[in-house]
Design a protein around this nucleic acid. Sequence first.
DNA 1: CTGAAAGCGCTAACAG
DNA 2: CTGTTAGCGCTTTCAG
Lengths: 335, 335
Amino acid sequence: MVEEKKNATIYDVAAAVGVSLATVSRVVNGSENVRPATRDKVLAAIKELGYRPNAVARGLASKKTTTVGVVMPDMTNLFFSELTRGIDDVAHMYQYDVLLTNTDDDPERALTAIRNLADKQIDGLIFMGSQLSDKVLTAIRATGIPVVLAGSVDKDQQLPSVNIDYKMAFSEVTARFLESGYDRVALVTGSADRAIDVDYRRAGYEAALLKAGKKLDEELIFPGARSYQDGVRLAKVIRDADANAALVYDDEVALGVLNGLQDEGLKVPDDFEIVSANNTTFTLVARPELSSIDQPKYDIGAVAMRMLTKLMDKQDLGEEQILLPYTMVNRSSTK
Amino acid sequence: MVEEKKNATIYDVAAAVGVSLATVSRVVNGSENVRPATRDKVLAAIKELGYRPNAVARGLASKKTTTVGVVMPDMTNLFFSELTRGIDDVAHMYQYDVLLTNTDDDPERALTAIRNLADKQIDGLIFMGSQLSDKVLTAIRATGIPVVLAGSVDKDQQLPSVNIDYKMAFSEVTARFLESGYDRVALVTGSADRAIDVDYRRAGYEAALLKAGKKLDEELIFPGARSYQDGVRLAKVIRDADANAALVYDDEVALGVLNGLQDEGLKVPDDFEIVSANNTTFTLVARPELSSIDQPKYDIGAVAMRMLTKLMDKQDLGEEQILLPYTMVNRSSTK
DNA sequence: CTGAAAGCGCTAACAG
DNA sequence: CTGTTAGCGCTTTCAG
């Protein structure tokens, strides 16, 4: 028979020292109100017994789990994994653990995830993804759990969020293309109907067009590409549309477009310029290297998590809609 | 004053129906022993009140949290994020949530992470990373929590694990190089001292060399490269070592070597052949596309998680050291 | 098939 | 400064 060495409980250390469990609880939680001598004895017993507080019991009694939920589309996408890395680091810095769920941007799965996380009594939630449907928003609200959006916008800006100014960034890139004489700028977005694609990326693109006295040509807008392979396929279509430049929302897709175009004999950047938007490692490995909008991905996650800690502590947030600065990184896919 | 709508508890639904909380618990947990009529009434009340069981309370009472911990080096590395994606999907399939922690392969952080996860009473743990130090191993043991290693080996094979046969794969690639007349094969590994690098990757490489009647030349072994940039820098060194082929343990590093070599004017695959080992998307975006060992990354994670569910259910595991099949993907970085 | 009662391990007033 | 006393919301015997 193997002896099951049960974990020591707070009772065991209280008994060992000859104090009440309240006192042990106090020293564990760093309360001032303990005589140093008592504290030392308790500490010694804790060490001796190898006592570690049971976080579940704690959670039940205190109604705080020191756990946050992170709901994201797909952790194998570098954009999101870098955001999440920022979240994770800051979360652990503040002693929170992270419950992670991938949704593949499926609202149903997001719904399930949120409810499930709420059941686990998470103290806060970070939500990512282009698809923030009303149902999901309602579900989040219903839980009453503090939430921050990271790299994600909700149409009506009802929730605290951290982003860059997507509209301005897309407008800026488009304007540059136009100024450089590239008059047929293709825009590749994630979807045809989501806020981030329509109200920000496309809106920025359109704004630059209008400012330059041109009007938007629907045939130059390409929604729906999600993978490298999608990008490769898209290259032909973009070429057939007679575009001479492209602004692509995702690096892998951009790389697909780049390689696809080159495989068809186009010279980048001489015949065609491409700018991507996430500045992940993918932009560096491309030949030519991809110019890109540089979003501070890690920081977006980190700042979002930091905001969430304030929310969980019921501190004042100040500005709820944070826009972090972005920069343009010019590499060899543009002149 | 906003009315705080408190979440309904099991008492509330018991009271609403006029049964005891034990009965409610039974229907919630799908026990057979409830009269259908009673069950229906309870179910109706649950729906009516929007009752959702508090997982923390459940965890305390049942000593099961339906949560597993995942300890990994870095989620922004595609190899690990794809493994973890497999873990995550299977975990949720079996109703487990995933607590994620990045360690950057730092044993100290792994230690902290494991203890912390144990405090949260996780039901199981999946560990990834090349660095499984004795201290970490001891810490894992001390928790008594079921563990499975994914894409990670422990020297003495004391823990259940899921991998491919790294030694055979590395031997096979090396042998091919040799057969094709590439007699100076560089080996790029992650470290000079860890089990996976020494006992598997390097051992496989060496085995092929010996079999071909050659002996290992230390100058052709390059440990320690971790990033794309490291690979770029390494390219010159590899070239100076007069190598004419390279087997690289990581895709991003391999890409760095590839681009670095090409930037110096070498022709791949004519002057130099390269094979990488993880077959992530990076192999596809390279020009020429990288040949690679194809590890079933998602499956490694998925199988590891499936094993863990068995362990947590105290089912018999059968073989504890699982080796999944790998394949070779020949692209344009080899002839 | 159902209920009563005893915890799970800890926090949090409330006394003293 | 320390102990007592209630719970937190649920599972789990044990009776009946």
